[in-house]
Design a protein around this nucleic acid. Sequence first.
DNA 1: CCATTAATTGCATCGTGACGCAAACGTGCA
DNA 2: TGCACGTTTGCGTCACGATGCAATTAATGG
Lengths: 112, 112
Amino acid sequence: MARSGPTEDALDAAFSPELFQSLCDPTRLALLRALLRSRVPESVGVLAERCPVDVSVVSRHLRALHDAGLVSREKRGKEVFYKVEAHAFAQTLRALADLIEHGCGHAHDTTE
Amino acid sequence: MARSGPTEDALDAAFSPELFQSLCDPTRLALLRALLRSRVPESVGVLAERCPVDVSVVSRHLRALHDAGLVSREKRGKEVFYKVEAHAFAQTLRALADLIEHGCGHAHDTTE
DNA sequence: CCATTAATTGCATCGTGACGCAAACGTGCA
DNA sequence: TGCACGTTTGCGTCACGATGCAATTAATGG
């Protein structure tokens, strides 16, 4: 077996279901869009007003997005605010794009 | 909110469920990885050998990926070959990344 | 024209995830 | 301390997608 470099693992890691699983649900995408539109952190209740689903559902979805590392959580008083981890999210997507285009031939350093 | 700039529509378009729906399934991701590893088009049968699922399932998944515009289809004889539309795919992801980072943050209203 | 191989489609099954409601939890305030 | 508000969690239900198998279609060779 010719040396399978860390590049194959990069593919596996980048295309792991975990990332996309959190993005496949329409409601989660709607929440993400809502968070992207208002760059300021939003509370669960406010976000729930912008989705036609129960607040408990919103809470669960936000947790899922948080587990996926796409949003960050901050508790203030009795409210919980979420905001998109824009940089990390964008970098993940760009790394993915590089991997797709420049294939598995050469390793690309995407760290800044 | 009277005037919705083009930014909002871009968000809606970019974060449409259609794209991510096709990426959320583990088997589809495995097929995508397999296709990315061998840059040359692969037949349904060959791809099925690399997945622990029935060939009919593979056929269906490839069709889904094709519908999403991520792979292209070419029929040669009785075999059908698929390959990743690497450039389009990568560009989509980069556009997404740009949208996330500089999308609608500072351009609050952009009353054009 | 028939046999063979590859791919697709019909169909039934099964598991998983989204959802709503209600109860529980936590925090702040009177 | 007790109440009110915001969030989370438990739980039952439901719908949808993934899967396998069998039948069908398409293409090639004898």
